[in-house]
Amino acid sequence: MNGHALELRDITVTLPEGRALVDQVSVRLAVGRCLGLVGESGSGKSLLLRSIIGLLPAPLAGSGSVHRVTADGTSEEIDREAARGHEIGMIFQEPMRALNPVRRISWTLAEPLRMHLGLRGQALKERIREQLDAVGIHDPERVARSYPHQLSGGMLQRVMIAAALSTSPSLLLCDEPTTALDVTTQAKIIELLHELMAERDLTLVFVSHDLAVISQIADVVAVMREGRLVEIGGASDVIANPGHPYTRMLLASVEHMAEQKGER
């Protein structure tokens, strides 16, 4: 897979009256890497993410395309509707709300396996166990039997990751997956994502407003403001040496917040 890349071309999200919330964003990202998308709330980073998988909320309309580019430069467009449950997976901000409260974990995990892989009976059970095992859950039987309200946030996010990876996608979209978790749990989830990227050659697009988290996981950082990319570059470069004033401002506000926390 070396040399392959994913490319977003002219991704645009518009309101019905025509105003663009995401404005012609194009990014190229090597397979197996993580793109960190940062920006304040309302900058369009979450919409950009949803638009990649064709999940824009009702009145919004999206345009643009996602391509797979090989080393020799040939590119192939990905059908985003069809890619759901196949090539692209997604995890969410609040795992406790993104899992159906009236269904057991096993039910949620079984669904894509049945639908997309046609697994049944013992094979299905076995696969669910493997999946939970792969995301670092040590007692998969108990977790599979549980309802979401019986598990912790970190555990639920692991379950979400297992569900998103059930059909072995090559791209995982992460919508602030650590924001709702405490700091220790955050670190564990980040570690898990690192491992999974290495094992599976997984590409990540990781949205967060938390630059500390981004610096831990992202290889490339893209800064968004008012629907546009204002800066993009290697993670260490952008964070150590921000080129755009807006990025400097974002960084400054993080430092400011860190100081405040320290004072308290």
Binding site: G85, F92, E111, P112, L173
Partner: peptide, 20 residues
Amino acid sequence: PYVEAPRSRGVGTTRLLISH
């Protein structure tokens, strides 16, 4: 979100409506 998530896993609208 608990409907958006399975939608991201490729579940169709009718099934989302009825099962989720």
